[in-house]
Design a protein around this nucleic acid. Structure first.
Length: 583
RNA sequence: CUACCCGUGGCACAGCUGGAUAGCGCGUCAGACUCCGACUCUGAAGGCCGUAGGUUCGAAUCCUAUCGGGUAGGCCA
């Protein structure tokens, strides 16, 4: 479709030159003006001529009519002028033939425009905190982040996926104290992160209790906690390089990572780098020094800040009044390190929309520091998730772990799958792909900025706009192709409206991929998959494929099924979904 | 108080670089299987696109104001 649009815009530019004079409208402008009519009875491609009327000093109706008489090419069966619109009707059979051939030739790369060749993108996503629950709040960053990575790789970029794990900070002091008091090595090795979380929650509550007790009923009295002091002391020892504490810390981190890996594996995610917060601790002083030397730092209430009044933003805190660093400090140091290491053309950060201001602030600080790559930093925010209507909050205990969510989805799917696949291993393999896929698809089906309410029943339904529905459609194409025993070939057999509609949708894939990348919006692909699945199912329902008596038509229909199969597989992969051949 | 995000049929969402009758799914109602996987498909009912102004040949889409919901805002990350 892109090549056809390009050709059309050049044709139009020529026609305008001949009719109205030279250099009035460029092919590029015309390309952008081309659109798809709301109803295919009007045409398959259209040029609204209203905006042209100013430049060409003619009424839109006149322009459309003049161009209709002038533009002719083999691809269009008709070019008509209707009320200021120039409508193009595509010749279905030739078009479908070309599309199917494009898909076949493109293979796994069909849909890619290879715009990123020679460019590097660094993506920072998922980034769970060690010893804290890996819950559905992390689903967004993990799945959007990885999908963006896959999309960029697909478009030719070389990508570096970074899991910037939260593996440093006072929480480790707390954890060390808690472990020494109540911990048990075997229990943690067996229970994994959950046990660490229990310790973490327990010590936080204990500290809070001590603080309240220390106030003796007077809410304005200063708070104090011995456990809090002990935690800070243990963290200080850790920072100073105490071997025992370092060993504990490494152990906590590895126990956590081991478990996150299981979830990543279900999603098919692998990272290129696990450099977490701890990695950047020794890289911060240089940046603080630079800020100080440039005169950007101000002391306010004892803390070091960068004033951002001029940009209508609150101050950015660089150092606390006790001289220790903060989140922005580390982010700046990490960005500098990544630019030095990877020479990125783009650095993408996928985090909750709640952090939008923080990113705007430290991006601005990077700019003020004179780093010329400041405009290559991109924050990709997303809305918050609630589950079955309830907001998740660590305090109230309404936390749903990602692994539990997946486990539930898998077991529900397994109940249904077992009927068709009595073999338990086979059943579970399918159930995992479908269950996890359902969750991912549901999550990625709407605009990432929208707050979403996760309803398991809706996500797992086989009906409607769901993951199982599209995976089922994919499995159906596989089944047809297997029975056909051939991938088919487009013939000159005349095609009907349903085949043509399917071909047009197949041809739209490259544009959708490009749009998803440009907008950092995987849901563009998700929506496209739904359109394609719906078009295929309509076609499948109305048109006999294998039992078609006209051999030439049968061959074309198999070829279209084959192209659909290819595009669905690629598109599903791009949104972190598997495409099982049987369900 | 300030900034950002969201506000489209009962529910959940597309459409938003302005363009031809506002779409999809769920739910509701009515239909279609001797047929390639019916976990499918067809049809109907249901919306003055939060509200009020403005810009324009044309506004769900842009601007202003306002209401409702969410998030953030110097020593947490």
């Amino acid at each position: 479709m892109l090549t056809l649009k390009k050709k059309t815009s050049e044709l139009l530019a020529d026609a305008i030159t001949q009719k109205f004079g030279e250099g009035l409208v460029s092919p590029d402008e015309l390309f952008r003006m081309l659109e798809y009519p709301p109803d295919s009875t009007m045409g398959d491609l259209a040029l609204p001529c209203f905006r042209l009327s100013r430049v060409l000093r003619r009424s839109p109706v006149q322009i459309a009519e003049a161009l209709a008489a002038k533009v002719k090419c083999a691809e269009f069966s008709a070019v008509t002028a209707v009320n200021g619109y120039l409508n193009f009707k595509i010749s279905p059979t030739d078009f479908a033939k070309r599309v199917a051939s494009d898909v076949t030739k493109g293979g796994e790369k069909y849909g890619s425009s290879m715009r990123g060749v020679g460019k590097t993108v660094v993506l920072d996503y998922s980034s769970p905190n060690v010893a804290k629950p890996f819950h559905i709040g992390h689903l967004g960053t993990t799945v959007i982040g990885h999908s963006l990575k896959l999309l960029h790789e697909f478009d030719g970029y070389s990508c570096v996926g970074i899991n910037y794990i939260g593996d440093w900070g006072t929480q480790f002091g707390k954890l060390i104290v808690a472990y020494k008091l109540w911990g048990n090595r075997e229990q943690i090795e067996k229970g994994g992160v959950d046990e660490l979380v229990k310790l973490y929650v327990r010590i936080n509550n204990a500290i809070k209790d001590e603080e309240i007790a220390s106030q003796n009923g007077n809410p304005d009295a200063p708070k104090h906690s011995d456990l809090g002091d002990a935690s800070r002391a243990e963290f200080a020892r850790l920072e100073a390089g105490d071997e025992k504490n370092l060993a504990l810390w490494r152990w906590f981190v590895s126990v956590s990572l081991l478990e996150y890996e299981k979830t990543y594996k279900q999603l098919g995610i692998e990272f290129d780098s696990y450099k977490g917060e701890s990695f950047y601790t020794d890289k911060m002083p240089a940046q603080v020094e630079k800020l100080r030397n440039m005169g950007l730092l101000e002391i306010d209430d004892g803390a070091s800040i960068v004033n951002l009044d001029k940009w209508n933003m609150p101050v950015c805190l660089i150092l606390k009044s006790d001289g220790t660093t903060l989140y922005p400090t580390r982010d700046i140091a990490a960005a500098v390190y990544r630019q030095d290491t990877y020479k990125f053309d783009k650095a993408i950060y996928v985090t909750s929309a709640a952090q939008t201001l923080h990113f705007a602030q430290w991006f601005k600080v990077v700019e003020l520091m004179g780093y010329e790559w400041y405009d290559r930093l991109v924050h990709v925010p997303y809305g918050t998730v609630s589950i079955n209507g309830a907001k998740l909050a660590t305090r109230t205990g309404n936390v749903i772990l990602l692994k539990d969510l997946f486990a539930e989805a898998i077991s529900r799917v397994a109940e249904i799958t077992r009927e068709k696949h009595p073999d338990e291993a086979e059943c579970m393999e399918i159930a995992e792909k479908v269950g996890v896929g359902a969750v991912v698809f549901y999550y990625l089906s709407n605009n990432r900025m929208r707050d979403i309410n996760f309803i398991m029943e809706d996500a797992l339904s086989f009906d409607g706009n769901t993951g199982p529905y599209v995976q089922y459609t994919y499995a159906r194409t596989c089944s047809v192709l297997e029975r056909a025993g051939t991938t088919g070939e487009m013939t000159d057999a005349p095609l009907g409206e349903l085949e043509f509609t399917l071909a047009k949708t197949l041809a739209l894939f490259p544009e959708k991929v490009a749009q998803a990348i440009d907008e950092y919006e995987p849901s563009v692909v998700t929506r496209y998959i739904l359109d394609l699945a719906a078009d295929f199912n309509r076609f499948y329902h109305e048109c006999k494929i294998l039992s078609c008596e006209d051999e030439a038509l049968k061959s074309s229909r198999i070829a279209l099924t084959s192209a659909t199969n290819r595009v669905l597989k690629t598109a599903l992969r791009l949104i972190c979904m598997q495409s099982p051949e049987k369900i």
